[in-house]
Amino acid sequence: MNFTLRVWRQRNAADPGAFQEYQAKDILADMSFLEMLDEVNIDLVHKNQEPIAFESDCREGICGTCCQMIDGEAHGPETGTTVCQLFMRSFKDGETIVIEPWRARAFPIMKDLIVDRTAFDDIIAAGGFVTANVGGAQDGNNILIPKPDADTAMDAAQCIGCGACVAACPNASAMLFVAAKVSHLAHLPQGRPEKARRALAMVSKMDGLGFGNCRNHYECEAACPKEISVAHIAKMNREYGSAALLSDQDPSS
């Protein structure tokens, strides 16, 4: 198979950036999208041109490192998958493929297809945890957790922090990311004591980092490689609503 690639090239954060065209030749249907890019890059080095900068690590769809807009869709045309698990058999021979980085105010572009997603770590640091110092834990079976609760918590906990939800959202909101963590921990007895505090702290951090508001477009769910449901957003809104009501803290502080 052969493809024409239109790839976003940008030297650094300050550079305005532009699309450039490359040819991907003799590509096999069984190659992953990133292996296709590897071959293009090897070819570029042989031509003494700087390869396309893009990030990946596990290439198994679990680390959340890879992130590309392919023909305007986060992680490309298949649902429930990351770019590293997208295979060339999903494309038609001879097609032109447009490849861009995530575009969101809170995720500044660093180089070509690489963006800075530190904002997600900042949100977790603000409240996305259970306060459980090492040393004091009781036996793991002392608190029974109904299977449906454990399963729902796990559904939410699968988030890989890739940022596709933000990239797909017209307002670049991080609501699904935040909701997934709030819902994961609120469904477990161990996470309940600080659920109100957690929801308030994470949401106010998110607002402060330049993410947009959620206007219920639900593009996030469609783009999520782990198919995390927007139902978790509803759960979070309930947690946040009751927390804001009960709390004497100002949620924006």
Binding site: F129, V130, A132, Q138, I143, A150, A157, H187, Q190, G191
Partner: peptide, 10 residues
Amino acid sequence: DQCVAAGVPF
């Protein structure tokens, strides 16, 4: 025990 306390959904 520690992992359960910290919210691992085993």
